[in-house]
Design a protein around this nucleic acid. Structure first.
Lengths: 201, 201
DNA sequence: TACCTTTGCCTAGATGTATTAGGCAAACAC
DNA sequence: GTGTTTGCCTAATACATCTAGGCAAAGGTA
């Protein structure tokens, strides 16, 4: 009986492909084992358990996404960099829905976070992309958070069918980027805190 | 043996509470049955299956959320309405993480969508909240999509620990709302479509 | 070549979950 | 009080995660 030649990396990549095909929430050790033609128990030599597998897929995807973004923003600045960042982000998420879901759905424990630098890298990339807008802290953090929120939210809603089909999403997306660019160029000065509604009860 | 007095509504609400406690992805028919002190099979008289149960929770939560938003924007306009909408949205999501996740995680089939009006209601509320900004279509749709994306994205990232703890999220959120208000007041005129990067390959 | 250690994959089994079929008895209508 | 509905049950099937322990192939060492 020839061996299948499994490694943790190969298993993780197959799991990521499976996630893209059937959705991140629907990956199972059983299905993964079937795709390799081995028994379920065999995978547990390479991966601690299902949770560990999902974490690995999340880190793999976060790394890939950061790579795409880094390549997109390299050599660009200002609006060009912002648009390139946004499109790299969106294109990856739409092309690899399972992988992208993994980057969000997994609650990483601090240990796993420390082991990897991907998330710090993403934040650095965001700040680099924003550099031309000349924002000083804490505006830089605030603007970065809003941008990532807008990208992430737009893509999740789009992928989940949250936008009715009356208007083409592509065109709408471009207008959103135009708007965000304008906002970054005119980031408002600090104002007094809001009233009671904003404080949770 | 006294009966537990189950109905579809009671089961759905218990499932929603369970979701808030343990996460929407972790609700199981078994756990739900245990919480009622009945056997698993008993629940299948009230709910078709797990998928049906999750759909019901999603619709329940979407309705509650719409109610909160409606109450918040009533009698307000302009920035006040926008901020009230945003805070109602965020406060609900943070107070009821499982319910909120349900509104996003469930892929509703067209049949279920037709049965309920909640999603249409949410879009109407968005448009009503934007009224004072005097946007005409298609800008209204585009701005509405961006706003919902920003709210949703911000809240998901916040709830998943996507923001490092260097700056208080509450203050950051208020600045984001200031920024979005400014953007809505200065929504940019239509510009020519973007270049190749924005078109998916 | 023969040995030995590692390691990849196996069988077997415990446990937990979703789901269906069919039954009994409480609650209710009259 | 009889009949019908309905709420919850037992029993059984299928499939998932995960552990323990075993055998045999790969690869290094003599």
């Amino acid at each position: 009986m020839a061996r299948a030649g499994l490694t943790a990396e190969r298993v993780t990549e197959a799991a990521a492909d499976l996630a893209d095909a059937v959705g991140f929430e629907n990956i199972t050790v059983s299905a993964l084992a079937r795709s390799f033609g081995v028994k379920d128990a065999s995978l547990y030599s390479h991966v601690r358990n299902l949770r560990d597998l999902r974490e690995r897929v999340a880190l793999l995807a976060a790394g890939e996404l950061a790579d795409r973004i880094a390549a997109a923003v390299a050599g660009r600045a200002g609006k060009e960099a912002m648009v390139a960042f946004a499109n790299a982000y969106r294109n990856y998420a739409l092309a690899h829905p399972g992988r992208y879901a993994a980057t969000q759905a997994v609650q990483l424990d601090p240990a796993a976070l420390a082991r990897s630098t991907v998330y710090a890298r993403t934040i650095e990339l965001t700040h680099a992309m924003l550099r031309a807008y000349r924002l000083a802290e804490p505006d830089l953090t605030d603007a970065g958070r809003l941008l990532r929120s807008a990208f992430h939210g737009y893509i999740t809603l789009e992928a989940n069918g949250g936008f009715s089909h009356s208007r083409a999403v592509q065109r709408s997306w471009e207008r959103a980027l135009d708007g965000l660019h304008l906002l970054l160029e005119n980031w408002p000065a600090e104002s007094p805190p809001h009233t009671a509604d904003g404080e949770r009860t």
